[in-house]
Amino acid sequence: MATQLAQKPEQNVKKPDYVITPPVDIYETDNEYVLKADMPGVAKDNVNITFNNNELEITGKVDEQYTSNENMTYREYTLFNYYRKFVVSNAINPEGISASLENGVLTVKLPKREEAKPKKIEIKAE
């Protein structure tokens, strides 16, 4: 029993990858939902946005130069990769999702389906 415990393969246990949950703003316009996330240290090519089964997943890989501790003499922050997931309603048209990254701020635009857009209802005169 004791030897079994001693041989417990600790190395095989996958350590959880620490991730940062980026702060996010979401607002709604007549035609779309707009999501903005602060993700400093991520290049455009390292952002991954997937939309699957009404789940919007955002991952961002931080450049290695910002995560390495080499030659560091003073630290106030540590950067990890970014991860965030949202469940969105059926009102989104998945084909029209677009995203842009500027100065470390990711903007994702989720257009609404035609059926979900606000409609003005005309009142017919009798």
Binding site: D38, G41, T73, R75, E76, Y77, G104, V105
Partner: peptide, 18 residues
């Protein structure tokens, strides 16, 4: 900020999103 130092160079990195 994080500060890095190598030989005669000092590197200061600050987080500034947006």
């Amino acid at each position: 900020v994080n500060i890095y130092e190598k030989d005669d160079e000092i590197l200061v990195r600050a987080i500034a999103p947006g």
